[in-house]
Design a protein around this nucleic acid. Structure first.
Length: 426
RNA sequence: GGAGGCGUGGCAGAGCGGCCGAAUGCGGCGGUUUUGAAAACCGUUGUGCUGAAAGGCACCGGGGGUUCGAAUCCCUCCGCCUCCGCCA
């Protein structure tokens, strides 16, 4: 959410930002409503002030005077009540409009309509040239009885799965490795709720707009399953005023992630690329409202993810996400795409976003700066490692001619020192 | 699931329906004192909206109601605690 004052003062900047993101908004309607709300607010404050003054007089008046004065004060009440109700409705509508105003993208965000126009900014590693016919992850899974999508679908519908044996262990190894790496870099590990109030989905910017992608409990609970630990972690300090001395807050969390993947029928149906549930280690930073700091953090959290991929010896590339592919909340986003032999292409495995105060304002998450001024925080987040996609990359890229999977050295201590997973093919 | 209790400022903890945006203590900040520190003493210390300012308005878990007037009364939701039951 943007600061209403900022929108008032820079309507053209906000309009241009929305246009760059290909998001339609009626800003003039919002500004007009804002004008009415403020105008009427002055009137209501004045009326309330008068009512308060009269009520106060009654308290001091002689008992026999009270009835008459009360009767008089009663008259102003009805008018005020009508105005207050109308104002409350206007304010609610204003907030709804405000929640839909997208954050203004950074100048460095490329123009573009969709993900095909994202701009590659870096490439690391060479996609491996196989001297045998490589299998895709499903085939490797079948070979070792590592993946069971049939039974996954039977008990939970399509895009659900069981991981078995070494692959299940590998998942744990990668998650723990990612977590340990981040803890070594000073990030505080968190175990988090993955079922949150819809208010928190609004606070982090997923609602309104992303309702179709989230699993929602029924009306008894008003709880949603999160699509990422970003949601509970970013909201950790909701409604707090932090001291500048305790910033930046750096957190890392491993959690299950749930995604409905509505509207993706027929897309990525083979394999585990697109699934409803997976594990992910996520990094989140909350810091002061300083664009330079935010930018530096953005580079750092991308670097953290790169270090994970490099140490796992997985080729990847980084794209600067274009305006049309950027979500409403982000200032800028870098996606990291890891090489997946079965796709003969890079597939998205990480997404690093910086938000400035967009999320923090919605979450009412603030801090007191050196001067004692209360300001809204900045937030950022990035994947460290997302389970199934990272497993796809690992077993496809590191498969051997004999069917086994080579384990990168950094993961071996999490797998009893083993160098290869799976039995060699006969 | 049943019975009861409680939710007040960074924390602790008062608060008769009007004099309460809220006592007091602790903590924080500034100062006096001190070679320095501690102690003591003095002052200061919530957030938002509006306004050039003075000021005005709102907020005592959330929402609604009663009343001329609500932190204080009523309803409801949320959260926490205690006891009983049930399950792990």
């Amino acid at each position: 959410m943007l600061d209403l004052k900022f929108i008032r003062q820079n309507p053209d900047v906000v309009k241009a930002g929305a246009a760059k993101k290909r998001i339609a908004i009626d800003l003039d309607k919002l500004l007009e409503l804002d004008r009415v709300v403020r105008e009427e607010g002055v009137v209501i404050d004045q009326l309330r002030s008068e009512q308060n003054a009269k009520a106060k007089l009654i308290g001091k008046a002689a008992p026999e005077e009270r009835a008459r004065l009360a009767e008089e004060t009663k008259r102003g009440k009805a008018d005020l009540k009508v105005r207050e109700d109308a104002q409350a409705a206007r304010e609610a509508e204003l907030r709804q409009l405000l929640l839909r105003v997208p954050n203004v993208p950074a100048a460095e965000v490329p123009e573009g309509r969709d993900d095909s126009e994202n701009v590659e900014v870096k490439r690391w590693g060479e996609p491996r040239k196989f001297d045998f016919e490589p299998l895709d992850h499903i085939a490797i899974g079948e070979l070792h009885d590592w993946i069971d999508v049939t039974r996954g679908a039977r008990i939970a519908g399509s895009r659900n799965y069981f991981l078995k044996g070494d692959l299940s262990l590998l998942e744990g190894a990668v998650m723990r490795y990612a977590l340990d790496l981040m803890v070594a870099r000073g990030f505080v590990p968190l175990s988090v709720p993955t079922l949150v109030r819809s208010e928190v989905m609004v606070g982090t910017g997923y609602f309104p707009g992303g309702e179709e992608q989230a699993y929602r409990c029924d009306e008894r609970d008003d709880l949603c399953l999160v699509g990422t630990a970003e949601v509970p972690v970013t909201a950790l300090h909701q409604d707090e005023i932090l001291a500048h001395t305790e910033l930046p807050k750096k957190y890392v969390a491993l959690s299950s992630c749930y995604r409905r993947e509505a509207g993706t029928y027929g897309k990525d149906t083979r394999g585990l690329y697109r699934v409803h549930q997976f594990l992910k280690v996520e990094q989140v930073i909350v810091d002061a409202a300083d664009p330079a700091k935010s930018l530096a953090h953005h580079h750092d959290i991308v670097k953290n993810a790169e270090d994970v991929l490099q140490s796992l010896q997985l080729p990847y590339r980084i794209v600067n996400v274009c305006g049309g592919d950027l979500g409403a909340p982000q200032i800028q986003k870098f996606d990291i795409e890891t090489w997946m032999p079965s796709r003969k292409n890079y597939g998205e495995t990480h997404s690093a976003s910086r938000f400035h105060e967009y999320q923090a304002r919605r979450l009412n998450m603030r801090y007191r700066d050196e001067q004692g001024t209360v300001r809204v925080c900045h937030t950022l987040n990035n994947t460290v490692a997302a389970s199934v996609r990272m497993l796809i990359a690992l077993i496809e890229n590191h498969q051997q001619a004999n069917g086994t999977v080579w384990v990168p050295p950094v993961l071996r201590s999490y797998l009893g020192g083993r160098e290869f997973l799976g039995r060699p093919r006969a």
